[in-house]
Amino acid sequence: MGASLNEIKTKIASTKKTSQITGAMQMVSAAKLQKAESHAKAFQTYAEKVRKITTDLVSSDNEPAKNPMMIKREVKKTGYLVITSDRGLVGSYNSNILKSVISNIRKRHTNESEYTILALGGTGADFFKARNVKVSYVLRGLSDQPTFEEVRAIVTEAVEEYQAEEFDELYVCYNHHVNSLVSEARMEKMLPISFDEKGDEKASLVTFELEPDRETILNQLLPQYAESMIYGSIVDAKTAEHAAGMTAMRTATDNAHSVINDLTIQYNRARQASITQEITEIVAGASAL
């Protein structure tokens, strides 16, 4: 019974206030998560359509791809687009993704000149800067429901750097949202664009009338395709961020409640002890008379 009654009382009050704040933050995150989920759903239809048109266009072509965005170059330098959050209080969300990126980079590269990093979100940018890793592009302050316009800057930057042969392949590293409790770190190859992995999709037998010609359309469509894929991962990552925030805040609130319970028991015991002591003193005083 080290602490005095008053000390325990203030502790209980302050923990209660903290739990109210974390409780409110949990609800805010929950609301944002719901919004982000519906946003991701709307985007899914777009991504599917772009993919379908691109496969329609590419599959009817028997010649090897000539477009620079589809040609596999010899890999001299790899770009990593790392998506993290801007603020903390999201549990293990950031450390998960950064850990997986670092271990992957260590496995694949021996030399620092073999890779470059594009950071989306302040936590990731600061993390790499603190470790003296070269970050070629930073985008901070993304809103909670990023619009296509907002992320266009970093997406276009990535696509342009690829086209300028700054790097020869691009991976996007982000947390994939599975459900509100689970997310998994993912590393996806975005560029060069390949359709090999979707071998189960039947090549359409319809021949298309192409105007003006295939190359021109591909030049317009492929950047749009790449942009939509990258934007898709950003939306996915944001959804995971809100889910992580919600879970972290729920855990914090639960912890606060258990701390308050313990403290209340401690407080009652201390009070009981002081009462007992008082009675003993009175009884002892009375019997001494």
Binding site: D56, L57, V206, F208, E209, E211, P212, T216
Partner: peptide, 19 residues
């Protein structure tokens, strides 16, 4: 309006992809 000029589209038109 496509990159090649204005087009009118009617049902059952030939399959086309254009910007």
């Amino acid at each position: 309006r496509t990159t090649n000029g204005e087009i009118g589209i009617l049902p059952n038109m030939i399959s086309t992809i254009t910007g």
